[in-house]
């Protein structure tokens, strides 16, 4: 592989991302013909059967958009967290967000409210939000300050507590387990068209805020004292970046369940390929996440037309050996 400049790598990623949606729609045995898609774009719906039209507009396009948005959000959030904590093992799941969202869903199931997608979205979102607030609160109370490394430790600790509570509820009630089984595994198969609007609004907001936060993160990385010397408050930066991570992760987790691979591995891939600078790594993670998730989702859809395999599984099975090979080659070369 030739070493590409950062700009060119990002450019190639962008091109790949733009060609992905049409490629996914055209490929596979259920693929659409290029002609009928073009005439659809011109507003002519006669070139395609009613059923194909419904499948395209109600199932395949929403799922594709959800994959792009969730992949971008998780890639971006993972990168922010790894830079903020200076910990390459950090992933958004460690802040207790995933388990908090799961607990939120279980509370909804136990409550007398009906299990509607909108309610589920709100329940998962508030579960993740409360989990994060609790993690910050606990860190503040027990250590007297808010430091990045403590956030991860107490996040992991509280995750086990939320996980235990969720498990108790699921064991006592099999209905509850069935209702959120797909969600627990991380899946895009239950996406509804109505969810795409709010998902896009929240994720895009989060991504824009993330880009703006890179300067503050850079200050933080130069050391807390230097940051203070330059007039920045490290604690404010921590809280602000955490809030962005919360928006990005909680919205994605609320619609698709936890997809761990993207948040953990994609930032590393972006660092290896695109560059170490925060903004480069952040853009790289976002684009790569947006590229990999729909691709993995499409791959499992091709493998099993019954749609039972979660994309996170495909990402982990193919991605982990691939990532190990990349890292090994990197270290051999040095």
């Amino acid at each position: 592989m030739t070493i590409l400049s950062t700009e060119r790598s990002l450019f190639f990623l962008l091109i790949a991302l733009l060609t992905l949606p049409p490629a996914i729609l055209l490929a596979g045995e259920h693929g659409y013909s290029a002609m009928s898609l073009l005439s659809l774009l011109r507003g002519d719906t006669t070139s395609i059967s009613d059923m194909d039209y419904l499948v395209l507009t109600e199932l395949r396009l929403p799922r594709l958009f959800a994959g792009l948005l969730v992949g971008a959000a998780l890639g971006c959030a993972g990168c922010l967290l790894q830079r903020m904590t200076a910990n390459p093992l950090a992933s958004p799941g460690l802040l207790g967000l995933n388990q908090g969202a799961a607990l939120g869903l279980v509370c909804l199931i136990i409550s007398p409210l009906p299990f509607l997608p909108l309610y589920a979205f709100i329940a998962a979102l508030s579960g993740a939000f409360l989990a994060m607030v609790l993690v910050f609160g606990v860190v503040r109370i027990t250590t007297g300050a808010i430091a990045a490394e403590n956030l991860l430790l107490f996040g992991a600790l509280l995750s086990t507590l939320f996980g235990a509570l969720t498990t108790v509820a699921l064991i006592l009630d099999q209905h509850a387990l069935d209702a959120i089984r797909f969600w627990l595994a991380g899946s895009l198969s239950l996406i509804e068209r109505s969810q795409i609007g709010p998902l896009a609004a929240l994720v895009l907001t989060g991504l824009i805020l993330a880009v703006f936060s890179t300067r503050s993160l850079q200050l933080l990385e130069s050391g807390h004292d230097t940051a203070r010397g330059l007039g920045a408050n490290p604690r404010t930066i921590l809280i602000m970046v955490s809030a962005i991570i919360l928006i990005l992760t909680a919205t994605s987790v609320a619609v698709s369940g936890p997809i761990l691979f993207i948040g953990l591995i994609v930032p590393h891939l972006a660092r290896l390929w695109i560059g170490e600078r925060i903004l480069d790594q952040l853009l790289g993670s976002t684009l790569l996440g947006a590229l990999l998730l729909p691709l993995a989702d499409f791959a499992v859809f091709l493998l099993d037309s019954d749609d039972r395999i979660p994309p996170g599984v495909a990402l982990a099975i193919l991605g982990v050996p691939w990532f190990m090979w990349l890292v090994k080659r990197r270290y051999r070369n040095q």
Binding site: L54, L59, P114, F115, D178, S189, D306, R308
Partner: peptide
């Protein structure tokens, strides 16, 4: 069946629909 793509298989002159635990969101409601 997992996808509404297969909806036509549900049809009959009479369609009898039973919902297992509708409170927890049965798939037919989606």
């Amino acid at each position: 069946l997992r996808s509404p793509e297969q909806i036509d298989l549900l049809d009959g002159d009479i369609v009898l629909l039973s919902e297992y635990s509708p409170k927890q969101g049965s798939l037919a409601r989606r």
